[in-house]
Amino acid sequence: MSWAFRIGALLAGLAVLAAGVGLVWLPYDTASVNIAERTLGPSMAHPLGTDHFGRDMVSMLMAGARTSIAVALLAVGIGAGAGVPLGLLAAARRGAWVDEVVMRGNDLIFAFPSLVIAILITAVFGPSAVNAILAIGIFNIPVFARVARGGALPLWTLDYVMAARVAGKGRGRISVEHILPNIANLLIVQATIQFSLGILAEAALSYVGLGAQPPTASWGRMLADAQTMIYTEPQLAILPGLAIVGTVLGLNLLGDGLRDLLDPRLRRMRM
């Protein structure tokens, strides 16, 4: 295991841990305002100080981790849940109309800048975390479909798939038994990449007010709030930003490390 992989696992693990603990316990309530204690510096009671409403920054960051990771994870779930079966189907019926429809549908979603999808959804349904999940998740579908199809196509030309067909197995069964397990590595790596992109997208959406709405804490929202005070209280803008960078960097390093670890071709090359 490379050091990059370890650092990635550490950073990503830290973010997931913060989010997990944040689900059941936070040091302070993040919904209540305490103007008397606003913008305090670091202290024993508040290791990272407080924000402009007097809320504990550690608690805010943990609550933000909770939101970011939940949104990104569910968006990956939507993307993989819909995209992988579509990609497998398209590969199993290469060149048939199903393939054509799936791939053209993918192109169509790709043609919408991801934020434009989010904007359309929020324009109609109003901003919320659920709509952010949908907007990011829809954009994940073609990504997973493409990776699944791209990984599956070369496998369909292999003799073991031919042998399974000679053994009377249908395309669906072959996709599940032979193709899916052999592209799982690719999908896991892609999932970590989409997870980290999802965190960035959630931060961007809530930054412009299209994501989770107050009082739900989110890193992007914290940055938006801090922007007006950037002259006087720059730490309020710096801390959530570092949280995002750390989480995304961790996930990216983890993804790269996993790819090296899981790809037998690379493993052989290093021998």
Binding site: L200, A203, A204, Y207, L223, A237, G241, I244, N252
Partner: peptide, 12 residues
């Protein structure tokens, strides 16, 4: 560079 949100980078 991949991990930094561009709007935060803009703020910095």
């Amino acid at each position: 560079g991949l991990a930094v949100p561009n709007f935060w980078f803009a703020m910095l």
